[in-house]
Design a binder for these strands. Structure first.
Lengths: 247, 247
DNA sequence: TTTTATGGTTGACTTGGATCAAGCGAACGC
DNA sequence: GCGTTCGCTTGATCCAAGTCAACCATAAAA
């Protein structure tokens, strides 16, 4: 159902529904800023849509790179494995975000992308994207911005890992999630975590016990209400205050 | 000794000498893979070359972005400041590497770039680079690779900050520097650090005392010889072994 | 329904790296 | 030449987070 061959595009309504031009994520995703006519050209390019079940890989480190992926729905993590078994979660991605940019560099993926819930993605063949972005300046520029934004995000994570203490890291993490959910029209104050404490810990450079303790502490202090994966933010400013609370 | 002082570039020769087509870094830098004719078109674009004195900023966080910079000679650091005074060094850049990619995202620089020794840069107006890369496919693709490489590098730093202990981080850092010096034709085993212990610490998420102690330890164990900023690597495999030495 | 597995919480203790503090050496300005 | 500054080293102590361990909660399987 997700896979739709470009040939049927006139026929089925479902196909039209999953076209970029009709996608409600188009203002967050790659199509940002494109005209209607340009959008349709992008539609041609985004031919493959695919479902990824919770726990399955979208791609693995080492695989040949030939497409980047836009998340239509669902939630992913990316991680990097060291030979000795250590791994680092490098990011959590949600609807409208792009996966696979790391693969351009060596033409092989350098990390694993794993669905944390049943998800749907759009595959964008990279060489065709390069062709199209030579013709559509807005697309070219926006793509550059997206890559750059990823670099800026990574710098933020470095700052977090390099200078913040455990509770600051977790506060920053929750505020970041909240802000991204808001941008997608969800509640900024109430959401379900898609990842385990261990995955959060890996992302934040902490052990799962430390993450768990920090959650409990935030709850005691009235900043949030936690019940397993269900989070309610009760005091955004409290969390923000935690972040700048000395080096 | 790695420093090549660009002090006397005779006027007439200097123009030719500083063109991409004659730059000895062209295989490391943006021009990688371009034909001679394409190189000349890139030369037109890279009009501004500038000297930056040790300690001076190439750009500051918040400034309007309109160009990326290729390092012709010298050494830089980039860092991000938090309001409360904490800062994180996000990278050290040497000849042939690009600076400023983070600015594309918001059209403002998001970090500071500071010369750690007297340096020379080539400014590449970004909008003109976008125009040219629509025409020269090789340039377009290579630029994408460079951005992607930066993302991959950042993931490596996350891994380092998230999962490694102090001595592993420093070993990884030294091996990385060594490898990059090698790629530029310098000794892989002997070099001068351009940055202070504090800057290394900031980059590695450690305090300067910890960096200093780790250096001393490496010396005691015969992996390296340190005298202030002068480093000699005596046992590369020893350093490599330190890195995979358990989580 | 009970059983099992997986993920989360909490406590006791240990430890790597931070902090505080003193002193040293090289480079620079006077 | 000499004093000042800045960066580096080293030691003593402390503490945030890691480790180890027990137990609890939820959901899926039997």
């Amino acid at each position: 159902m997700a896979q739709t061959h470009p040939l049927n595009q006139e026929i089925s309504l479902s196909v039209i529904k999953t076209a970029c031009s009709n996608c409600n994520l188009r203002e967050l995703c790659l199509p940002f800023g494109l005209s209607l006519e340009e959008l349709e050209r992008l539609d041609d390019l985004v031919s493959t849509r695919r479902r990824i079940k919770r726990g399955d890989h979208l791609y693995r480190a080492g695989e040949v790179f030939d497409a980047i992926y836009a998340i239509r729905s669902g939630f992913f993590k990316t991680d990097v494995l060291l030979e000795d078994g250590r791994d680092q979660v490098t990011g959590f991605q949600m609807a409208g975000e792009l996966l696979g940019l790391d693969g351009i560099s060596t033409e092989h993926h350098t990390c694993n992308a794993i669905a944390l819930e049943d998800s749907e993605i759009c595959a964008i063949p990279f060489s065709r994207l390069e062709v199209l972005s030579r013709e559509i300046h807005t697309l070219q520029h926006h793509f550059h911005k997206v890559m750059s934004r990823e670099i800026v995000r990574d710098h933020g994570v470095m700052m977090l890992l390099g200078t913040m203490r455990a509770e600051e890291r977790l506060a920053a993490f929750l505020l970041n999630l909240s802000q991204r959910f808001t941008a997608r029209g969800f509640s900024h104050a109430e959401f379900y975590l898609r990842m385990t404490r261990e995955e959060i810990g890996s992302y934040l450079g902490l052990k799962l016990e430390t993450v768990s303790r920090a959650f409990s502490r935030f709850q005691e202090e009235g900043h949030i209400a936690v019940q397993q994966k269900h989070i309610r933010i009760l005091n955004v400013n409290g969390l923000k205050a935690l972040m700048n609370h000395r080096a």
